[in-house]
Simulated scan of single mutants.
Amino acid sequence: MNTNQLKQEIIEYSKKIGIDKIGFTTADVFSELKERLKRQQELRFQSGFEKGSNEERTEPKRLLPEAQSIIAIAVAYPSRMKDAPKSTKEERRGFFCRASWGNDYHDVLRERLAKLESFIHAKVNDAVTKIMVDTGELSDRAVAERAGIGFTGKNTLLITKEYGSFVYLGELITNIPFVPDSPVEDSCGECRKCIDACPTGAIVQGGQLNAQRCIAFLTQTKDFLPDEFREKIGNRVYGCDTCQLVCPKNRQVDFHIHSEFEPEDDIAKPKLKPMLTISNREFKETFGHISGSWRGKKPIQRNAILGLGHYKDKTAVPELITIMNNDPRPVIRGTAAWSLGKIGTEEAFEAITKALEKETDVDVRYEMDKGLAFREVQASQK
């Protein structure tokens, strides 16, 4: 088997099936990553969404004993919406991050990799392969970096020369011993715009992220959002793009190559008030095809409630009162009470006071007290 010829054939085929960049690396241990993961655990900087042990995340042969090489792929996604819908005082909107625009990238990239896998198996009878996209044990970024697709920026995202950091990543582990590609040189230089712009200071230093403070992570949690982050989440209902948008490597980067990733106006930037009462079925039918729906509707609803509080949307007061009084979920009731206090109308304060008389959940009562405390803040500002 001529692996150099096969490698070239794979590269050519990848272009035909919608893969924008492809690179090859060895299945050697990711030693530097292993040490970094240990340090992240010691500092409690991990999100908790990570899959597998440090060994499984850094030793490809634990996932595929026959592993000799890893093929990394990157697929570009757009960074701008054409004619994006605007928020109005009557209809405030939230937004999903760009990585959640269009169809779920996990499905799209798995489909691309499955085609690549079939191509390889047709060429090599005894080929052994394993596909991963984001939810696998391996770090997509570390694999792509070593395979020469891009370099890791100070915002911890992979940055490519052609598409900036607006790329989805995936990989295919195989027993075929391909000649590896060379990594590209880090070119962030002295720039620290992403570090300075991060709303919560989650980028501790270049290349180190405290996921527990990252808005992208926080929007996916299901409990009460800690107070210090409630103002900073703004109208984000899922994810955060700040560190990408300020990056000079992303200036003028906006590729609309794949129709699957084109944003749908009312999904990428949904109206907030309808999110409060959407049923499970409606949520699945409307948002089930995007990656931002993977945690279900509860985090999205909580974030929508916070977004209405952020806007101080007085038109949302009746809906917020209704869910504060009737929603069976303490996090939703309590967050609604907090946002009502943030909006700060007399109707809102009276509703919180009345609801407090019958509320039995300790956490919700605490949120109601915090909502009522906004009245004292208002009085002190007059």
Rank of each mutant, 00 (worst) to 15 (best):
T3P: 06
L6V: 07
L6I: 06
L6A: 01
I10N: 02
I10C: 10
Y13H: 10
I22D: 00
F24C: 04
T26P: 10
V29I: 13
L33Y: 08
K34P: 09
K34D: 13
L43H: 13
R44F: 02
G48C: 05
G48S: 05
G52D: 02
E56G: 12
T58K: 05
K61N: 13
L63W: 02
I73R: 00
A74E: 02
V75I: 15
P85Y: 07
P85L: 03
T88R: 03
E90C: 07
R92P: 14
F95T: 06
R98H: 12
Y105T: 05
R110P: 08
E111P: 05
R112M: 00
K115N: 12
K123R: 15
V124W: 03
N125I: 10
D126W: 13
A127L: 09
A127Q: 01
E137N: 14
L138D: 02
G153Q: 01
L157C: 14
I159P: 02
G170I: 02
E171W: 01
L172Y: 01
T174W: 01
I176E: 00
P180V: 02
P183C: 07
S187V: 08
C191N: 11
R192I: 13
D196W: 12
P199L: 08
G206H: 03
N210I: 08
A211L: 03
T221M: 11
E228L: 11
R236V: 08
G239A: 04
T242M: 12
T242R: 13
T242W: 00
C243R: 00
P248Y: 03
N250T: 06
R251H: 14
Q252I: 08
F255W: 10
H258V: 09
S259P: 02
E260R: 12
E262P: 09
P263Y: 04
D266N: 13
I267T: 01
P274Y: 06
M275I: 10
M275G: 03
N280G: 11
R281T: 15
E282Y: 05
F283G: 06
F283V: 09
F283N: 03
S291L: 09
G292P: 04
W294L: 10
R295L: 11
I300L: 15
Q301C: 09
I305F: 07
H310Q: 06
T315Q: 13
I321L: 08
M324W: 02
N326W: 05
N326E: 15
D327C: 10
V331W: 01
I332F: 09
A337H: 02
W338C: 03
S339G: 01
G341H: 11
F349T: 07
E350C: 04
I352L: 04
I352S: 06
T353I: 11
K354I: 14
K354V: 09
R365D: 07
Y366I: 06
K370V: 14
G371V: 03
V377K: 14
V377M: 08
A379Y: 06
Q381V: 10
K382A: 13
